[in-house]
Amino acid sequence: MASALRSAILRHIRVPVTHSLALNGSRLASARSMSSHGDDHLDKQTVIDRVLDVVKSFPKVDPSKVTPDVHFQKDLGLDSLDNVEIVMALEEEFKLEIPDKEADKIDSCHLAIEYIHNHPMAS
């Protein structure tokens, strides 16, 4: 019964082949519908704005001094523990987990923006 139904249905269904052939590489890359990442990649200006917001909301920081090129310890007068605290705040904001090696290197807004912008999982 089931196999008869199956063959009856399969005989009548025609899938348009031309449509699937039109899916070339660039279209696949731009729309991966079931993918959990890749499509929602952040553009640079969003990353800059959100990083600066995080740094400005840090209690010890004077918000007027914060620019995209500011160095946490040299320009903002923070210590190394504050630096780690900011990196943790950025992790929370962008839902990342930055490994220790990279986290140690992030000591300025510029490096933080670069790292997060290049991170595929940032959201």
């Binding site: 190394s80 523990l81 780690v84 605290e85 943790m88 992790e91 929370e92 987990e97 220790d100 986290a103």
Partner: peptide, 10 residues
């Protein structure tokens, strides 16, 4: 100390 701080934050 920094590792501990990160663990605590996470």
């Amino acid at each position: 100390v920094f590792d501990f701080f990160k663990t605590a934050c996470r």
